[in-house]
Amino acid sequence: MGFPVYDYRTDVRNVLITPQIRSRFLRMEPGQTAQLHSHDLGHEIFLILEGRVEFEIDGETEELGPGQMCVALVDQPHKVRVLGDEPMTMYLSVTPHIHPTHTPRTMDGERLPHNFAPPSAYDVEPDMEVSVSELVTRQIKTAQQLAELTQKCAAIQEEMGEQLKSAVTDKDEASAIAARQAMWDAIYPVYKAVSELGDVWNELAPRITY
């Protein structure tokens, strides 16, 4: 069994949703616009596949066509408008993908309350058999595990960092490489734990609806 292959002509939807990245194909009709918004944590990449669009990013405007790409960085207000008489199809990704995924903006760029979009907005089916109470418990436990790993990591960075500085000063390549590896070995589980915290949070946050 092979890996999934996606086609922008038929898979016009979210194709990958993780705390590290959300990616999708998006189709918009002639004249359609998207509300001005930004992302608190994520950079958003847009690659135009068909049609022409006008992007406004952080107050600057550019027109893009097939094969062209642009990027809205963290906290940069951005919006898009389809130009001409033809629909537009693009690939986009947001990295990382952590709720609240969008911060709406006024026309003047002022921040509005966060938008905690429902799972359906990202083509995700929530596991309703898991209660909000269970998710909160998992959130707390995962946060505590992250705190413990971060404390251990900080201690190792301090110890190995001093060894790395000495090794670089002494031009001791083997010791420098060993210290660098030890620092990374401590950093890696922290990033894994951050992803796990994001997983739980992305399940919990959209469930709080009134």
Rank of each mutant, 00 (worst) to 15 (best):
G2L: 11
V15E: 03
H114G: 13
E110L: 11
L83P: 00
Q144S: 02
Q145T: 05
T169F: 05
Q76S: 07
V71E: 06
E159L: 10
V12Q: 06
P4C: 07
A155V: 01
H97D: 08
E56P: 06
I177Y: 03
D199R: 06
L197W: 02
R24C: 04
P113S: 03
A147I: 02
Q181F: 11
M69E: 11
L26N: 01
A155W: 03
M90V: 09
S38K: 10
T10Y: 01
F3N: 10
L146A: 11
F116V: 06
D40Q: 09
T61M: 13
D40C: 03
Q68E: 14
T61R: 15
P96Y: 06
L164Q: 00
Q181C: 08
S195K: 12
D170C: 13
E134F: 09
Y188C: 08
D11A: 13
Q151M: 13
R105Q: 05
R27F: 01
S120V: 05
E203Y: 02
R180I: 12
A143S: 11
A154Y: 08
H78A: 02
V130F: 08
L83K: 07
P87N: 08
I156M: 11
A193C: 00
P119H: 10
S93Q: 12
S23W: 10
I187C: 13
G67C: 01
F55I: 07
